[in-house]
Amino acid sequence: MKKLDSSTRSSFAPTGTLRVGINLGNPILANEDQGTKRLYGVSIDIANEIGKRTALPVQLIPFKTAGNTVDALKAGDIDLIFVAIDPVRGADISYTPAYIQIEGAYMVKASSPLKMNEEIDVAGNEIVVGKGSAYDLYLTREIKNASVLRAVSSQAVVDDFMSGKGNVAAGVKQQLESDAKRYEGLRMLPGRFMAINQAIGIPKSRAHFENTTAYLSSIIAELKQSGFVADAMKRHNIQGAKVAD
């Protein structure tokens, strides 16, 4: 494993501490213990491993949505985020290869006539999705006939949906399934409408960002190959996702 040279290291973590944005809107990647406020999950394990390899102290900074982490990265308030690879965000963010692939799914009420993903993009359907999430970005590009309605966050999608907003809910399969346990009369549509590749992102505005991305990419490749990512997913009981190819 190669090391970061001093100038690249300084541009990567200009404060001397690696400030990592943690998106709590995706339970596959990160969660917060409600009692202790301790953050835990696959992305936290990877962040701490990067801190260990770079000999940098790690500061984990929680955010409610992926969009919030992106905004903080662009503002220079954090140095690294865990985010879905998306071409829109890619204008400002340099990505590593993916470390996890996650499924995006649709949920409807049990009484809905909708049975398949292919039936969703029809005039009159209204899809509720978390504002600024990877699913929002994807659906905004791909949906041609249905309407996209935005909840304030991915966690608010099911509550908004059950309060009468829209006739389809969209998001991380596990998030929808977990939130749906609070209600009755809901069902998931089979399969997925998209596969989301989760990666590390750093700002393109920093000097030497290409070198930093190459360095982080080599770490991700090693963590996948060694079983580190798979072990973290097993340790945190993550299902419905897989180690990215």
Results as ranks from 00 to 15, higher is better:
187 R>Y: 05
160 D>G: 09
150 R>A: 14
185 G>E: 06
177 E>I: 06
165 K>Q: 12
143 I>V: 15
185 G>A: 14
158 V>F: 01
187 R>D: 11
169 A>T: 09
167 N>T: 10
196 I>K: 00
144 K>E: 05
140 T>C: 08
137 L>W: 06
172 V>A: 10
168 V>D: 04
138 Y>W: 13
184 E>L: 15
150 R>F: 07
194 M>K: 14
191 G>R: 00
149 L>V: 00
142 E>A: 15
171 G>C: 05
198 Q>A: 05
173 K>C: 05
154 S>P: 01
141 R>N: 15
144 K>Q: 12
174 Q>N: 07
177 E>K: 05
187 R>E: 07
182 R>I: 00
171 G>I: 03
166 G>R: 02
163 S>L: 13
159 D>F: 12
177 E>V: 02
166 G>A: 07
158 V>S: 04
142 E>R: 07
155 Q>Y: 12
171 G>M: 02
181 K>I: 03
167 N>H: 03
137 L>G: 05
185 G>P: 05
154 S>N: 14
149 L>R: 05
198 Q>I: 07
156 A>Q: 10
154 S>E: 10
142 E>S: 12
189 L>A: 10
189 L>H: 03
144 K>W: 03
196 I>W: 01
155 Q>M: 08
148 V>I: 14
137 L>A: 10
155 Q>H: 06
195 A>V: 15
158 V>M: 15
167 N>G: 01
169 A>E: 03
148 V>W: 05
165 K>G: 05
192 R>Y: 12
141 R>C: 00
174 Q>A: 10
183 Y>M: 06
184 E>R: 12
162 M>H: 09
138 Y>V: 07
149 L>K: 04
197 N>R: 14
184 E>V: 13
184 E>Q: 12
181 K>R: 13
163 S>P: 01
193 F>P: 04
165 K>V: 14
169 A>G: 03
186 L>C: 05
148 V>G: 09
140 T>S: 13
159 D>M: 11
176 L>V: 06
145 N>S: 12
142 E>T: 14
196 I>Y: 02
152 V>G: 04
146 A>W: 06
146 A>P: 01
187 R>P: 00
170 A>F: 01
192 R>G: 01
159 D>W: 06
195 A>H: 03
171 G>P: 08
159 D>G: 14
174 Q>I: 11
193 F>G: 03
180 A>C: 10
164 G>V: 14
165 K>Y: 04
194 M>V: 13
147 S>G: 08
171 G>F: 04
175 Q>M: 15
147 S>Y: 08
143 I>M: 15
195 A>C: 02
153 S>R: 06
180 A>F: 04
161 F>E: 00
189 L>R: 08
190 P>F: 02
178 S>H: 01
199 A>I: 01
144 K>P: 02
175 Q>R: 09
145 N>V: 08
158 V>T: 10
150 R>I: 11
173 K>Y: 01
154 S>Y: 04
175 Q>V: 02
147 S>E: 14
194 M>T: 12
141 R>D: 07
163 S>K: 13
162 M>Y: 04
176 L>H: 06
179 D>G: 03
166 G>I: 06
196 I>S: 04
158 V>N: 01
166 G>W: 02
164 G>M: 08
185 G>D: 04
177 E>W: 00
146 A>C: 02
188 M>G: 06
170 A>S: 12
150 R>L: 12
169 A>K: 09
139 L>F: 07
196 I>G: 02
